[in-house]
């Protein structure tokens, strides 16, 4: 019971968040609580508002109205420092592979010797030890995204947001990223991830948020949403029918 309460208070909550641009509703989420211990996957077609919701949760975008809270208090600098995000296209600094990790580790204030050790550990974890000194811009798509995930994990985040991190990767590279995500999740990092890939949602998700047209149409345990969707929009999307 006590554990459940801790989960509840540490959870992310969206209340009355609304974003409109040029008269179009881009995001309208009256209420959404992300409390589950396992990965939350946000599914939906293009333009559903998934990435926008993720950016609101991470504080990169301020909604027109409403608020995002964590542990019952509005998202603040401390919360943001405990979050990290991986973008659809990895944005790597124009430095070496190790330099990218070093940059993140400096942000968390680690001393030089600690950083060196941590960089070696992270590179080994991501299978990039051989490329430590190489310029990050010469990495393949899969390696670049692995480095982006490692750099995010270097911040020791409590919550890791991922915006379609495998959308342009082949199955092998996707599997490597998924392994890293599951490993982070098993170590207690809360995962909130956007994807188009229903198979990926089945492999990773503990709970699923289905979105369409800026609205959350369904949120529940992964098995329930993916196997017995309650909304017509979810059924159409999961059946592979074109949804707009």
């Amino acid at each position: 019971m006590r554990d459940l309460m801790i989960e509840e208070t540490a959870g992310l909550k969206v209340s009355g968040v609304h974003i409109t641009r040029k008269g179009s509703v881009l995001l309208d989420v009256p209420q959404l609580s992300l409390n589950g211990p396992g990965p939350t996957l946000i599914l939906g077609p293009n333009g559903a508002g998934k990435s926008l919701l993720l950016r609101c949760l991470h504080g990169l975008i301020s909604p027109d109205c409403g608020r995002v809270t964590q542990g019952g208090v509005p998202l603040n600098a401390v919360h943001k420092s405990q979050q990290a995000m991986v973008f659809q296209q990895p944005v790597l600094l124009r430095r070496s592979v190790a330099g990218n990790l070093d940059f993140a580790l400096k942000r968390v204030g680690l001393a030089r010797a600690e950083r060196k050790k941590k960089i070696a550990d992270l590179l080994a974890e991501g299978g990039l030890s051989e490329k430590a000194r190489q310029s990050a811009k010469y990495l393949s798509g899969g390696e670049a995204q692995r480095l982006a995930v490692l750099r995010a994990l270097a911040l020791s985040p409590k919550t890791l947001f991922l915006d379609e991190p495998t959308s342009s990767l082949d199955p092998g590279a996707t599997q490597a990223i998924e392994r890293m995500i599951l490993s982070a999740s098993s170590q207690g990092v809360r995962i909130v991830m956007v994807t188009h890939d229903i198979g990926q949602a089945r492999r990773l998700a503990s709970d699923v948020v289905m979105m369409q047209g800026g609205y959350v149409v369904e949120h529940g345990a992964a098995k329930q949403v993916l196997d017995s969707p309650a909304s017509e929009a979810s059924r159409r999307y999961l059946a592979g029918r074109l949804v707009t």
């Binding site: 950016r55 991470h58 990169l60 600098a77 943001k80 420092s81 979050q83 990290a84 995000m85 973008f87 944005v91 600094l93 940059f103 993140a104 942000r107 911040l155």
Partner: peptide, 11 residues
């Protein structure tokens, strides 16, 4: 190019 990434890293 860096805007969102740097903000995400708290810069």
């Amino acid at each position: 190019e860096y805007a969102e990434q740097l903000r995400s890293l708290g810069v």
